[in-house]
């Protein structure tokens, strides 16, 4: 076994996702020579403010995957209480147990070695549909979501529209 387990497992997942795509997102590599860096395109979930948008994000897997989680970062501009302004996704399943920087130890689900790209993205898509404003990564977005919902809606709509136009015009 000269090739690391992590690389084999990621290759298998990529092949599987290409063969049997999962509704709601598509996945590929940023650079075909680097299995540890993925690019995913998330379709804004229906019946949410993000519907109609296409959001590009990157996943960075450590060599210790699946024992340790990947990091995820949106490349497309997105306004959401649980996504930092620089795009970093803050969701509990991408943090290891004991990784308590964010102070959400007990009740929520943490990283487990059984998670796959698919289960990660299902969680992220459900986070888009259902933001958690109790421990926001983007405090301004969270405040707006709570207190000035119509402003929040407008801002999200702008991201969605911008993305849709770019898609039409530039095909990205």
């Amino acid at each position: 076994m000269s090739e690391p387990q992590s690389s084999l497992l990621l290759k298998k997942q990529l092949a599987e996702l290409n063969k049997n795509p999962v509704e709601g997102f598509s996945a590929g590599l940023i650079d075909d020579n680097d299995i540890y860096r993925w690019e995913v395109l998330i379709i804004g979930p229906p019946d949410t403010l993000y519907e109609g948008g296409f959001f590009k994000a990157h996943l960075y897997f450590p060599k210790e995957y699946p024992l340790r989680p990947p990091r995820m970062k949106f490349v497309t501009e997105i306004w959401h209480p649980n996504i930092e302004k620089n795009g970093d996704v803050c969701i509990s399943i991408l943090h290891e147990p004991g990784d308590d920087k964010w102070g959400y130890e007990k009740a929520s689900e943490r990283w487990l070695p059984v998670h796959t790209v698919e289960t990660i993205l299902i969680s992220v898509i459900s986070m888009l549909a259902d933001p958690n404003d109790e421990s926001p990564a983007n405090v301004d977005a969270a405040k707006e979501w709570r207190e000035r919902y119509s402003d929040f809606k407008k801002k999200v709509a702008r991201c969605v529209r911008k993305k849709r136009m770019a898609r039409v015009i530039f095909g990205v």
């Binding site: 964010w102 959400y104 130890e105 007990k106 929520s108 986070m127 109790e134 926001p136 405090v139």
Partner: peptide
Amino acid sequence: MADDAASSSTCTGNLV
């Protein structure tokens, strides 16, 4: 903040 955090599933980014 600790009370809030107990039931949450995301992270407190730039509060501090």
